[in-house]
Design a protein around this nucleic acid. Structure first.
Lengths: 259, 259
DNA sequence: ATGTTTGTTCCGTGACACGGAACAACGCGG
DNA sequence: CCGCGTTGTTCCGTGTCACGGAACAAACAT
């Protein structure tokens, strides 16, 4: 029964848009009366909201989601550095962590000019298609790299890297330079540069600046991104009593075969 | 059973901190085996995580919570204005909406200097104890004001307004000035100034800047807050082609005849 | 008016949630 | 090292409540 409720809620990812009863029934594969009953319960609990015939995710979920410790602590600690980076570049800033073979975005800040990007807070993208993802992958251990390279590489645009050899070279360049570049691999007309945030020798996060291709000036962005990432790394290292222990930043090891 | 699962998850609000099985059992009033079974299910679904004997809110909740349409759309639209405000003041910025008789914070951005505040993203505070809350209350209709005034006024600090007459006067001042002030009513040594975001003649949100009392300069902050709030109001009104309109998030157009 | 899709109610059946009890795994002080 | 309180886990018989087909109602479409 919890499982069925989860099925219903998962319908709203990633589109989030409102759904009607019969759509939910179809998408979950559950019979209509079942969805009807469960959805009513979920509304009672605040997990869903209902306006007319349409169901939406409810406010309670937002409240609980904001409390998730891993996410909240890192986001909170990183925010000042993201602000610095935004102020220095006035471009779109991302903060992401690795989860399995994907990158999950914890924060995205921008000004009035809205880039059309596939990234969303709480959403995930393939590690191989974004600057943040490649920065994370390059510093997540050789086994993960091999695992990723052994599978077909997904692509978001025609520019996404699909050749394993090319990706391997790109990762090696990232490992020596500490900087990850991406040009139109996640969205057309958008380029991106990212830097990993270290805990020891592995990346616990990465942050990036995304910019319209036309005004992509890597030489100017690179120092800013690197500076912000290193500053965050240092704070996470534990100096500050204001921040939380590193243990709370552990990402799930991809060797987790349970399930 | 859903209800019991919700009880368990609600244990994590607002502290969010990790809990052990027996703590959950005690706080929910559910017998231990029941909590054990439910918690295991929740972990399987990604709603909870478990590290050793401690349960935490899971990543799935963060993902779903980020998708809640009301919250996400408003936050996304407001963000550029919050950035403007931050850049102009370099102080802590809040965005909040009203939910019942409380204010819920949708966003909070700040620099390296961290104020010690009771506000948390996704968290709620009494309408009467914060600048954002009073700004919302002042423009939410007379009935709500009376409702609030008819009950005992909660307080977060010794400076919180507890005298109904004084609060009524404060609200009237807000209504004529369009600005809401607060001094140490939510946290000691912190002052705050807020402005409502309008849709028609009622406030749909409010944004504020919080600053250490020692350097509180209302005359300089007021224009910035008002400018940002008015800018956001205008964009919400629907004109703005500069940001992506809310309508782009609807899958299909509809006319809401219900209710 | 008439078919079609969507939302809701009903209810008999049976799966499975329930939680007391008993057991196992700690952590601690002696 | 050993007893002892605490916490976590497994077991399983009982009874409940989730389940979903079927029938009905309401909302569109034509």
């Amino acid at each position: 029964m919890l499982e069925k409720a989860a099925l219903i809620l998962d319908c709203f990812s990633p589109s989030g848009g409102p759904y009607r009863l019969s759509e939910l029934s179809e998408r979950t594969g559950l019979p209509k009366p079942t969805v009807h009953r469960l959805a009513a319960d979920l509304v009672r609990l605040g997990w869903l909201e209902r306006s007319g015939p349409r169901y939406l995710l409810g406010a309670k979920l937002f409240e609980l989601g904001s409390l998730v410790p891993h996410r909240r602590d890192l986001r909170e600690t990183a925010l000042p550095f993201l602000q610095d980076l935004f102020e220095a570049t006035r471009e779109t800033i991302h903060l992401g962590v690795r989860e399995g073979m994907e990158v999950v975005y914890l924060e995205r800040i921008h000004g009035h000019e809205a880039l059309r990007l596939p990234s969303r807070i709480g959403g995930s993208l393939p590690l191989t298609c974004t600057a943040v993802g490649k920065a994370l992958l390059a510093f997540s251990g050789a086994e993960l790299t091999e695992e990723v390279l052994s599978r077909p590489l997904p692509s978001l645009t025609p520019h996404s890297i699909t050749d394993p050899a090319r990706l391997r070279m790109a990762l090696e360049k990232i490992q020596v330079s500490g900087l990850s570049y991406e040009e139109q691999e996640a969205a057309l007309e958008v380029s991106c540069i990212a830097a990993p945030v270290f805990a020891g020798d592995t990346a616990v996060a990465a942050l990036s600046v995304a910019v319209p291709r036309s005004r992509f000036r890597p030489a100017q962005l690179a120092p800013a991104v690197r500076t912000a990432a290193l500053g965050l790394s240092r704070v996470l290292r534990g100096g500050g009593a204001t921040t939380f222990p590193l243990s709370s930043l552990r990402t799930r090891p991809y060797t987790d075969k349970s399930r």
